[in-house]
Design a protein around this nucleic acid. Structure first.
Lengths: 208, 208
DNA sequence: ATTGTAACATGACAACTTGTCATATGTCAA
DNA sequence: TTGACATATGACAAGTTGTCATGTTACAAT
């Protein structure tokens, strides 16, 4: 997280820095991104940068967490609108992510993000059971909204396994989509089929 | 891939370098690992390193690909032994990965690998449809061994979706396991339950 | 108004990186 | 013996990062 000092800055200065960071992370992978470049673009001295952020990672994760907050809010809205139906919720959730990440000023940034995402960054972008970076305990709240009656739950924490699988599959599909420049239609179709497979099972047994 | 020059080296020199690399990648994340450290440990001059490998990534991926080859061979053996049963195959496959990666001289290395794996590294470790790094076309061969008759296949390439989901879920479980230091028993149990969910579906419908 | 204290700003600096390249040294065939 | 080629090597340029001593504010207390 940024320091208090960063938040004491004028909103203008804050966004200048964040925009410079976005620009760098859009054109370079996280590993290749350079703090030098960011501070040059934002016209702030080197020492100041380290007054605001611990390091490059701190800044990067802060950017990711802003998207995560958005995704979390969206997810809570959708699960309510769908009256707890997990699959409808995820189908709409996925589309809203695709739309958000495909916005003109976001697309290349997220392409970089997804191309290089690791399990650390994943936690900043998607909430999971073991996510310490979730102050408002979104995850717990989300679980409570799920209509469990329709789900194949046999053990205590099968619900968490189910949700974990859905998040994992969702992220994996996102990564594949953004690294291979497919059309939205094609991506949505692939996601839908995966959801069907998860919902009804991979073993042949019944028709939809 | 290493250059021809590397393979012209004596086996002894080769392993000295690879062992030094393993050591460094065991104690540092990929990002923090230093070529300086590796060449110092292996006692080779800086210029020589660049005769053998393009860069740090080239060396790292070469190490990963050696494990991938092992995993691929194992998978082909298992699918044959299980007569094409995808779920039994994956259950045994997962256990064999866990055992291999948990070996005394591997464990910390793989812990680093899984903690920092991204979609690029994933492709070097696990074969997928879009994997260019698979000379012997393992993937195609594997697909042919699968007993499709038991699977819930509705569309042309549902099989690839299924296999993709299984690989994705397997890797995700590995990452979680190795980053949280759980016991093998606990890990296997969690994997088993996920497999059941994938097999029979997440929606309530029938008993096992 | 003056002083003191804490917060913030700044750029020079040390201590690392990495990849290249000119030069040296092998090796083997003609 | 002479090329021609593959390989070895370490000095080097160009970059990176995080720190820190020294300024400069701002603002409360006397």
């Amino acid at each position: 997280m940024p320091t208090q000092t960063f938040f004491h800055l004028s909103k203008e200065k804050q966004t200048t820095l964040l925009k410079a960071a976005m620009k760098e992370f859009t054109h370079q992978s996280f590993a290749n991104a350079s703090i030098n470049q960011i501070i040059k673009e934002a016209s702030i001295p080197r020492g100041s940068f380290y007054m605001y952020f611990q390091d490059k990672e701190d800044l990067y994760f802060y950017l990711l967490e802003q998207s995560r907050d958005r995704f979390q809010k969206q997810l809570l809205i959708l699960i309510e609108e769908e009256h707890g139906d997990l699959f409808c919720t995820f189908e709409r959730f996925f589309e809203s992510i695709i739309d958000y990440c495909s916005k003109k000023n976001h697309r290349l940034f997220f392409k970089q993000v997804f191309a290089n995402i690791n399990s650390q960054a994943e936690k900043r972008l998607f909430p999971t059971k073991t996510n310490v970076f979730d102050p408002r305990s979104f995850y717990k709240h989300f679980l409570e909204q799920i209509d469990v009656s329709k789900l194949n739950i046999q053990q205590e924490d099968d619900l968490e396994e189910i949700v974990g699988l859905l998040f994992g599959m969702t992220l994996h599909t996102l990564i594949l989509s953004f690294t291979s420049d497919k059309k939205k239609e094609e991506i949505m179709n692939s996601y839908h089929r995966k959801l069907i497979l998860l919902k009804y099972g991979m073993e042949k047994y019944r028709k939809e």
